[in-house]
Write a protein that binds this DNA or RNA. Structure first.
Length: 529
DNA sequence: GAGTTTGAAACT
DNA sequence: CAGTTTCAAACTC
C-alpha cells in the first residue's frame, strides 16, 4: 500500500527541506519492519539471526555492534553505502527502498508555521540518529539545529534509514506519537487557558521521581496532559484536582468556583495519576476553608484533608477494575491479605506509610479521570466501569462509598485503640473484634443496602455481635468500655485485621450466594488463618 | 553561558 | 526485566 506521503512546498529557499512524518504515515507504515527486508540481510553479509543490538557509527555507516562487519567488508561496502547501495534493478532493493523510505521519510507537508516553531536540537554525540534527538524522534530532519556531526539530514538518508530500522526492531512503536490525544484523561471543564491540560495521555507514561511531574522534565507535563495509569511516577502532582498543579500552572485557584474545588473533593476524583503511591484520598470534606492556600501548604488543610498515601481499599481489592488485569487485581488482593500474616501492627503500618509511601508499582485500578463524573459523584461511574469490565463477585454488594467508610472505621478503631492502650493498657481483643464487625455493618446499614442482602449479612455475624449494642463502636473504645487483658499490642492488631478478613469473607460469601457459585477467592488466593 | 539536574533512551 | 549508563533537555546560578 502506498504510504500517505504527500509532497509539500519545496520551493522555499531552504537547502534542507523540512519534512515531517505524519501520524497517518506512521500508522500506515509496515511496523515493525520485516527483517528480511533489511539492508544487511539483502546484502547477504549479515546473518538474519543477528539481531541489532547497538548502533555504532563508522565512517561507512551505521552498524549494530552485533553485526559489525570486518574492515574489509566495510571497505568493500563503503561505496555502495554512500550512494545507491544495491544494484539498481534488484527487485528486492526497489521494494525495500520504496517501502522503507517512503514511510520513514519525513513528510513534506510541514508548513512554515511548524518550521518556525519547531525546536532545534543540540545533540553532540548521538549524530541525531537516536531517539535522544528530538528532531529524529519526531521524524524530522535536523534543520538549523545546533547539533554536532549531524546525520539526520537528507544527505544521510541511508544512515538515517538504518538507524530508524534498528530502533524499530527494538521498539516497533518507537516513532509513534507519545501522546494519545484520543484518550480522555482529564475532565474537560472548558478551561481553554494556555496551561490547562489537554485531552490525552502519555502512551508509555512517565517515570518521574523527583519533579512531582510538575516540570518539563516530565513528558506528560510537557505535553500538557495529566499523568495516567500508564505512569510510574513518584509523588505525582500532575493529576486532576491537585492544588499544587494548579498553583504551579499559574492558575488562580478559586475553589468556590472551580470544578476542582475541595468542596467536591472525592476519593476517586482526587485520584488521577495511575500511580498507587500518589493516591491522594481526601477522607474529610468538611473544614475546607476559603483561605486554603493555593500552594497546598496550608497546615489547617493538611490536618483536615488527609491526603493519605495508602492505597484505597477499593483499589487493593480491585473493586474498581477499569482496564486492569485480573492477575494484577489478584496480586493486589493477595498483598493486602498478606498483611494479616505479618506481625505488623496497624499503627506501625500506618506510620510506615506516612514516612514511606507504599511503593506499589504498576497501574492503579482506579481509572484516571476518564471515569470520573465531572459533577463530582463518581460512584456510578466507578461502579459502572467495574461492572462492565470486571464482573466482580462484589459488584452490587459493595458500594463505592463503603470502602471509604470502612477505611474511616478502621482508622478510627486503630486510633481509638491506640489512645485507649496508651491510657489503660491493652483492650479486650474480642471486644475490638466484635465492635469492629458491628461498626462495619452499622456502616452498611447507613448505606441502605438492599433488604435481602442486608438480611443475609446480618445472619452470619450474630454470634459475633451477641448482645452488644448495634452502634458505632469507636465510641465504646473511647468511653473505656473495654476490658484490659492482652499484653500483646501486635496481637490486637492482628485480631483487627482478622476481623476485617472475616468481614471480607462474608462479603465474598454474599457475592457467591448471589452468583450461586461457591468458591472462596481468599482461600484461592492462598490466604489461610 | 556554564554547570547541574533530571528522566528517557540505550545498553548490560 | 531490572539495574546501569548515556544522552540531551530543562533548569539553576
Amino acid at each position: 500500500m502506498a504510504p500517505n506521503v504527500s509532497l509539500g512546498n519545496l520551493s522555499s529557499n531552504r537547502q534542507k527541506p523540512y519534512v515531517k512524518i505524519t501520524d497517518s504515515v506512521r500508522e500506515q507504515s509496515d511496523f515493525p519492519p520485516n527483517p528480511l527486508n533489511s539492508v544487511t540481510e539483502r546484502s547477504g553479509i549479515f546473518p538474519p539471526e543477528k539481531l541489532l543490538k547497538q548502533l555504532v557509527f563508522t565512517e561507512f555507516g551505521l552498524y549494530p555492534v552485533s553485526a559489525m562487519p570486518s574492515t574489509e567488508l566495510l571497505l568493500s561496502l563503503a561505496e555502495p553505502f554512500r550512494s545507491p547501495r544495491l544494484p539498481s534493478g534488484s527487485p528486492v532493493s526497489v521494494v525495500k527502498l520504496e517501502s522503507s523510505r517512503s514511510h520513514r521519510k519525513p513528510n513534506m507537508n510541514a508548513n512554515n508555521v511548524a518550521m518556525k516553531d519547531r525546536k532545534r536540537c543540540h545533540c553532540k554525540k548521538s549524530r541525531c540518529l537516536k531517539l535522544y534527538c528530538e528532531c529524529f524522534a519526531a521524524g524530522e530532519y535536523c534543520d538549523g539545529c545546533n547539533c554536532n556531526c549531524c546525520r539526520n539530514t537528507i544527505e544521510h538518508e541511508a544512515l538515517r534509514e538504518e538507524a530508524t530500522e534498528i530502533i524499530l526492531e527494538r521498539n516497533p512503536n518507537a516513532f509513534r506519537p507519545k501522546i494519545d490525544r484520543s484518550s480522555r484523561s482529564y475532565q474537560d471543564n472548558g478551561d481553554d487557558s494556555k496551561d490547562a491540560p489537554k485531552m490525552g495521555k502519555h502512551n508509555r507514561g512517565c517515570h518521574c521521581k523527583k519533579t512531582e511531574c510538575l516540570k518539563k522534565y516530565c513528558e506528560c507535563f510537557q505535553a500538557k496532559v495529566l499523568c495516567s495509569e500508564n505512569c510510574k511516577c513518584l509523588d505525582c502532582k500532575n493529576y486532576e484536582g491537585c492544588v499544587e498543579r494548579m498553583a504551579f500552572c499559574g492558575k488562580k485557584y478559586d475553589h468556590t468556583k472551580s470544578s476542582e474545588s475541595f468542596e467536591e473533593c472525592d476519593e476517586t476524583k482526587a485520584v488521577s495519576c495511575g500511580n498507587n503511591k500518589n493516591t491522594n484520598v481526601c477522607l474529610y470534606l468538611e473544614g475546607c476553608e476559603e483561605e486554603m492556600a493555593v500552594s497546598g501548604g496550608d497546615k489547617k488543610h493538611k490536618e483536615i484533608c488527609i491526603h493519605q498515601t495508602i492505597t484505597p481499599i477499593s483499589t487493593v481489592l480491585g473493586l474498581s477494575s477499569h482496564g486492569f488485569s485480573q492477575t494484577y487485581k489478584k496480586r493486589k488482593f493477595q498483598e493486602f491479605l498478606d498483611l494479616n500474616d505479618k506481625d505488623t501492627p496497624l499503627q506501625e503500618l500506618k506510620n510506615d506509610q506516612q514516612e514511606n509511601p507504599p511503593t506499589v508499582s504498576g497501574p492503579l485500578p482506579i481509572s484516571p479521570a476518564s471515569s470520573v463524573n465531572p459533577i463530582g459523584d463518581v460512584s456510578s461511574a466507578k461502579l459502572g466501569s467495574s461492572k462492565s469490565t470486571c464482573g466482580s463477585l462484589l459488584t452490587d454488594i459493595i458500594l463505592s462509598q463503603d470502602p471509604k467508610e470502612l477505611c474511616s472505621v478502621l482508622v478510627s478503631v486503630s486510633e481509638a485503640t491506640k489512645i485507649l492502650t496508651e491510657k489503660n493498657g491493652m483492650p479486650d481483643i474480642q471486644a475490638v473484634k466484635d465492635n469492629l464487625i458491628a461498626s462495619i455493618f452499622e456502616v452498611h446499614d447507613k448505606e441502605n443496602w438492599k433488604e435481602e442482602s442486608h438480611d443475609q449479612k446480618k445472619a452470619p455475624d450474630h454470634h459475633l455481635r451477641g448482645s452488644r449494642p448495634y452502634t458505632m463502636n469507636t465510641d465504646n473504645f473511647l468511653s473505656g468500655d473495654i476490658d484490659i487483658k492482652e499484653d500483646d499490642y501486635a496481637g490486637q492488631e492482628r485480631h483487627i485485621l482478622a476481623s476485617f478478613r472475616d468481614y471480607l469473607r462474608k462479603l465474598i460469601a454474599l457475592g457467591n450466594l448471589e452468583d450461586q457459585h461457591v468458591d472462596d477467592p481468599i482461600e484461592k488466593a492462598g490466604f489461610t488463618t
